[in-house]
Design a protein around this nucleic acid. Sequence first.
DNA 1: GAAGCCAAGATTGCATGCATTCTAGGCCAA
DNA 2: TTGGCCTAGAATGCATGCAATCTTGGCTTC
Lengths: 253, 253
Amino acid sequence: MNTVRARSQKRGSPSPQILRAVLRLREMILTGQLPAGQRVAELKVVDAIGVSRTPLRLAMETLEHEGLLARRPSGGFTVREFTLRDVQQALELRGSLEGTACRFATESRASQDLAPLWQLVGDMDEVLRASQPTVETLNRYVVLNERFHDTLIDLAGNALLGRLMNQVHGLPFASPSAFVQAQATSTESFRILLVAQEHHRTIVQAIADGDGARAEALAHEHARLALRNLDAAVRDIEAFKRLPGSVLVKMGA
Amino acid sequence: MNTVRARSQKRGSPSPQILRAVLRLREMILTGQLPAGQRVAELKVVDAIGVSRTPLRLAMETLEHEGLLARRPSGGFTVREFTLRDVQQALELRGSLEGTACRFATESRASQDLAPLWQLVGDMDEVLRASQPTVETLNRYVVLNERFHDTLIDLAGNALLGRLMNQVHGLPFASPSAFVQAQATSTESFRILLVAQEHHRTIVQAIADGDGARAEALAHEHARLALRNLDAAVRDIEAFKRLPGSVLVKMGA
DNA sequence: GAAGCCAAGATTGCATGCATTCTAGGCCAA
DNA sequence: TTGGCCTAGAATGCATGCAATCTTGGCTTC
């Protein structure tokens, strides 16, 4: 249910009450308990998650920076609403950032070890070997996929890039595995998954070859797949609504 | 204590006390009043800027997201310290993001109007026409330069990109005009400035030609100039120390 | 003299009260 | 009925008190 938030939390984590508030509040937003576009009533939330107003306000400040809340001119916050275009733009930007990561990784590859990436590619191959994956294997794929993308970012060796990437991943549908769950059902989507995996492999190969430009181009291509997945998901509204974070997206008429 | 409070701020800006705290605190950090690497004592700061602890803590949360403060594991915050490498990485990333902006701008140029960019380029030409610019003209250049870079980002039409860019600009030396002031003094630096201006022109030209790849490459090249400026600045420690934000940078041996 | 331990002071995190501001809903006038 | 105004209740922003935790300095012990 909770979209992914599993990155290496190297930064000092907030105090328990704030952390609790951030986690619960984020969940309430992504599950639609707090309707998109609507004001967040502090007292209701305080009541729902059992912390006092002070840590809650700190948490809201955090979620504002993450982009899930927006400040109201007259005070307080609203749950931010996303258009389909917002999601598309986030996906495009993710592709660009990952492309940048590939380039950086290639340039500073000198003493880099690509073995972890190869390992992850191999593991994902394993999962996809079955012609019709189960929910369990797909869950495993999600984990591996996220780890792959995280590792790629880490390999770039640019801490700031990692932070920005985290911010992007916090937005609805912008995390690497956002669509994987929906891809189990449709055969066409599953084919996209196979192509994506081929991208993974060739990206690592390009980095190994020192071909940063190719790696970057592949990352862009990889992101385009996400855009296609978005298209496919939108076409099947019912399936779309089951994806986490979909409640935040206002479908254009 | 507090008597009158002007609500109805412009869209999305924090309440007055928080805003005040953010601004003053940021200033205290960048001027070195709060030494880098050291813990921020809430009570001292409260005393110095005249807001109570609650809005100050909100402000610290904001500056943490900006990257100027870091959470201490045992509570509270420290002023974040940057290495030269951090600064370099931020500059590299800025180049990549601006390159991305150029590409996006080119791709969605359909009904875009490049006139503002041309205008800014012309105005900057004007400023640089003098063989030896004064402090005043340089100040004007700073304004124009920042506006140019902002406009470029806007032209990309990707709101998320704008947000990330803002975050980058908040880091020491990562804003577009960080080195301009130091470039008035040295003749060599001034030449770099002329090259930078040539970049501006060719970037706009490339966008106008629909040549996104060229525009992107030029933006990367443009950022490399900033890296050279950083090198030059570091060589002249005294001048370096006069640049805003330098107190945050720990010079490696 | 150095290392470890302890206590008093300092500091943070949290909860809550209060004043100000916003807002929903009713009432009056056109 | 519709539109605008007004008021009472609700919500927010802020200040501050309190308890728990951390830190610093000194003391003991080896």
